[in-house]
Nucleic acid binder design. Structure first.
Length: 498
RNA sequence: GGUCGCGUGGCCGAGCGGUUAGGCAGAGGUCUGCAAAACCUUGUACAGCGGUUCGAAUCCGCUCGCGACCUCCA
């Protein structure tokens, strides 16, 4: 069932917000540049993939059938000295290149699971598509945009720019400037016609570990090629959405476009979405100056940058409070605030689940339905999760008031209450991808826990009725030490795990 | 140096021409055996200087500050 709502997205290549219209009604093809698996997952990766996870989830929520392709780059990524990242990792650790790739792919998958991201529909690997990459190189050569030199093949950016007038459109670059500024000592510059040309096939040196046969040499594909090839293979020559981190705009995405246009004379996609960078304490994360924190350190609190460990769901909530296209600045204070906000939201959900109405009136309906509608509307406005979240928070005091009797829950029709419940669970869990870690602890033995807590609160209630405050306070304090918080309300005592 | 973006109350962070964002922290109150939780009330912020406009945080210009990309990067 699809939800009738117009979606608007900020299209990086047009530099403006546009109405989203899929190529095939009801279906969406989305390609997101995945990680290069040569080292442990960086926290910045997490932010990017969580952002696209929310976008993917929301598109599904709207009723689209989405094919979500996110690649694993396990070859073809050059370092400054021309060495492949995978080979370098392998030599350093004395492992097979594929062993390195597998190890970090596993680590990446573990982290994605920890942060509760959905798996992509297809997760192709660059090394699994060498033949297709060779074919695309040939296509590019046939179309006159590639030339061979000493066994390597380069993309002719100058000719392409002159004929197609699109090179530099995405990143806002002018080829004259690129020529003037490219470093001349990198990547076999002497073999290129122009410094801005880039390799689409590289001849391998004798000691290079990862190499394949090709019409030009025993070598390996250039970095940008695998995305052009795999997106085309699984989503078609032109598909709907291409995403990635802001830092990939140039050169990666720019060159990807050049390759696709150069090979098939068509744009790879209609909408380019770019997520912004993750900062810490106002600066880009950088290993060299110590301004960095790993996902593990963030969870355990084992870092000078944080005062405590944070649950992955707290970090996910924290990310939701900032638009995907804005920089996100991690600070300990901001994380602490998010932790409290997250718990407040989850507790409201627990309260909401238990609410029932006789539907005697409907004076509350208007407020509630309006806010629920706005949650959807905000997400349809370029996936504005922070704004949508704020609507949910406007509903929190209402939910609590219904429970406490400050507002009459019976002034809510059954339909409106159902909408409220569906909106909360739909957005918090299905779209935002949060998990309720507050109640998750007792999920397996919920009945035992409920029974025990029922017994304890009953005993404490007896003590309270006898004004035996020392006993009732001892129970409360002892439970507090176990992170179980008692809340004495009008209708008895409730409890939550913190 | 080139290209692009950003500067919002104590902190984080939406808004992008006129209407309460929201979270966290703070203050006052209600409730409570005391607490906690919850609820109610409360803050009059948009880097600076000009300009456009009936009206600007929101548009334009300049100044200052910050960041990203230009080289591997999510």
């Amino acid at each position: 069932m699809s939800i009738k709502k117009e979606l608007f997205v900020y299209n990086s290549i047009q530099r403006k917000k546009e109405k989203f219209e899929p190529i095939n009604e009801g279906f969406i093809g989305m390609y997101v540049c995945g990680p290069t698996v040569y080292s442990d997952v960086h926290l910045g990766n997490v932010r990017t993939f969580v952002s696209f996870d929310i976008i993917y989830r929301f598109l599904c929520y709207l009723g689209y059938k989405v094919r979500y392709v996110r690649n694993i780059t396990d070859v073809g990524h050059l370092l400054d000295d021309g060495e492949d990242r995978m080979s370098k990792g392998a030599k350093a650790e004395n492992l097979e290149p594929m062993e390195v790739a597998q190890k970090y792919t596993n680590g990446f998958h573990d982290m994605m699971r920890i942060f509760n991201t959905l798996q992509p529909s297809i997760e192709p690997r660059a090394t699994g598509h060498i033949l297709e990459q060779i074919e695309m190189v040939q296509d590019i050569i046939n179309n006159g945009y590639g030339y061979e030199k000493n066994g390597s093949v380069y993309f002719d950016t100058v000719k392409f720019a002159e004929e197609k007038k699109t090179y530099g459109q995405l990143s806002g670059r002018v080829i004259d400037e690129l020529m003037a500024e490219s470093r001349s000592d990198l990547k076999n510059q002497s073999e290129k016609k122009h410094p801005s040309d880039f390799a689409i096939w590289m001849k391998a040196s004798d000691d290079h570990l990862m190499k394949w046969n090709s019409p030009w040499s025993v070598g390996f594909p250039g970095w940008h090629l695998e995305c052009s090839v795999m997106s085309t293979k699984y989503l078609g020559e032109t598909f709907d959405i291409h995403g990635g981190g802001n830092d990939l705009k140039f050169p990666h995405h720019e060159n990807e476009i050049a390759q696709n246009v150069g090979a098939c004379n068509c744009q790879p996609c209609r909408y380019w979405l770019h997520t912004n960078m993750l900062l810490m304490n106002g600066r880009k994360m950088s290993k060299s100056d110590g301004n960095t924190i790993t996902p593990e350190e963030l969870m355990t609190g084992d870092s000078p940058h944080v005062s405590q460990g944070y649950d992955p769901m707290v970090l996910r909530f924290f990310m939701l409070q900032t638009h995907y296209a804005s920089t996100l600045d991690i600070t300990d204070d901001a994380l602490k605030a998010s932790e409290k906000g997250y718990k407040r939201l989850m507790q409201a959900w627990q309260v909401l689940q238990k609410l029932e109405t006789t539907g005697a009136g409907n004076s509350e309906d208007e407020d509630v339905t309006r806010l629920c509608d706005m949650v959807l509307e905000d997400m349809c406005d370029d996936f504005n999760a922070p704004k949508a979240l704020s609507r949910l928070f406007e509903l929190v005091p209402k939910i609590n008031s219904y429970k406490e009797g400050h507002l009459d829950v019976n002034q809510l029709s059954a339909d409106a209450l159902r909408l409220l419940k569906e909106t909360f669970s739909g957005f918090i869990f299905d779209v935002f991808g949060l998990k309720d870690v507050l109640s998750a602890g007792g999920a397996d033995n919920g009945n035992v826990m409920d029974g025990l807590m029922g017994l304890i609160t009953e005993l404490r209630q007896g003590a309270r009725e006898n004004k035996d405050w020392s006993t009732s306070d001892k129970i409360r304090d002892s439970l507090a030490a176990l992170n179980i918080q008692l809340k004495d309300g009008k209708d008895g005592t409730s409890w939550t795990i913190n």
